[in-house]
């Protein structure tokens, strides 16, 4: 049972192994805080949609299952979007249209169709958490690489005296700017994908 959760972290990591949801992963990984925000949004939507799809799996007629899933997913995305706009407006600005685009994030529809519609509630919840955390971890890795090397900073939430940005001496003066741009996103994702592939083949005893 616990495997339903852990499989999403590395073995079936949505970004690096299943290669789903790359579009938001490339777009919002410019700052660590955006990666965390996007991750939280995706976890919430994934959890909500998996729960409802699993609960309603006998109610939803098979012929209109995809429209039904989309309605459920879109509702949760709208809730996230409204909540972010109201309570974390800066984050909402940074993520922009990508919050609304969670609707078409293949991870969520993919999990609803391939998993939640065939499994029990408990398993679906664990699957959603695992996939969501796996997505967040992937996003966080990309964002860390891009922000640290590309801008020399780590942007988190401002708390008390801490203004929210850690500046890394040596890098902040002359960062590798290209990594902060769209090109850099593809480069970083490519290297991580290669790393995960290498780990996979090594485990199998390959070259």
């Amino acid at each position: 049972m616990i495997k339903e959760f852990t499989k999403g972290l590395i073995k079936e990591n949505p970004i690096f192994i299943i290669v789903l949801g790359l579009c938001p992963a490339l777009a919002v990984s410019t700052q660590v805080v955006n990666a965390l925000g996007m991750g939280a949004g995706v976890i919430f939507v994934l959890l909500g949609s998996n729960i409802f799809v699993s609960l309603l799996k006998n109610f939803i007629p098979p012929r209109v299952r995809i429209p039904s899933y989309i309605v459920i997913i879109a509702s949760f995305v709208t809730v996230v979007d409204l909540l972010m706009k109201a309570y974390t407006p800066t984050l909402s600005d940074n993520l922009g249209v990508f919050v609304q685009l969670i609707v078409v994030n293949c991870i969520i529809l993919g999990r609803a169709e391939a998993y939640a519609s065939k499994n029990t509630l408990g398993r679906s919840v664990l699957d959603a958490l695992g996939m969501g955390v796996g997505f967040t971890l992937g996003l966080l890795l990309i964002a860390l690489a891009r922000e640290v090397l590309g801008a020399g900073t780590i942007t988190l939430f401002p708390m008390g005296n801490f203004n929210g940005t850690i500046r890394i001496p040596g890098l902040v003066e002359s960062p590798a700017r290209v990594l902060a741009l769209a090109t850099g996103a593809l480069l970083v994702v490519g290297y991580f994908k290669a790393l995960f592939n290498w780990m996979e083949t090594r485990k199998k005893g390959g070259a």
Binding site: P61, V64, S68, V71, I72, A74, V79, L83
Partner: peptide
Amino acid sequence: IGGKLAIICATAAIALGLV
């Protein structure tokens, strides 16, 4: 089938209206 889909949509719409 249409009725069931309509029920899902209506529930979603009410929930979103509340939020």
